[in-house]
């Protein structure tokens, strides 16, 4: 039985140094509306391990998951100010809250993003 999770990810970079990073994962309280979009991501996991929830799998293979999020799209919002020839910049990279269908199999997890329709 596949489970559904809501996930959002964002971080802020200030003057080329990362400021904070936030990954929020929550089980979906209601069934997500929409259709699976894009290719699914397969991540390995140990079925015998105690920690076999979605969060632990994602944090363990975060580089691959980050690349998967990049295919879905990041929103970049950057502002910079140059005052008297001194530059300061703040960039905010955000992955908007998206529903994922997560299917735990024998030794791997199938993660598929669900694209919602016009209504969000």
């Amino acid at each position: 039985m596949a489970k559904e999770y809501l996930l959002s990810y964002d971080y802020t970079v200030k003057n080329a140094i990362i400021y904070n990073e936030k990954l929020l994962i929550s089980p979906a309280m209601t069934k997500c509306k929409g259709k699976p979009t894009g290719k699914p991501l397969l991540l390995p996991y140990d079925a015998n391990s105690d920690k076999n929830d979605f969060r632990s799998v994602v944090t363990k293979h975060f580089d691959r998951f980050f690349a998967y999020l990049a295919t879905l799209g990041f929103a970049i919002h950057e502002r910079s100010t140059t005052q008297n020839f001194q530059n300061t910049s703040t960039a905010h990279l955000e992955f908007p809250t998206t529903c994922f269908k997560v299917d735990f199999n024998d030794s791997f997890v199938t993660i598929t993003a669900i694209k919602q329709g016009e209504k969000r």
Binding site: F74, I76, T82
Partner: peptide
């Protein structure tokens, strides 16, 4: 300066 975009 300001930049805003959704990059896929």
């Amino acid at each position: 300066t300001a930049v805003y975009a959704l990059v896929k």
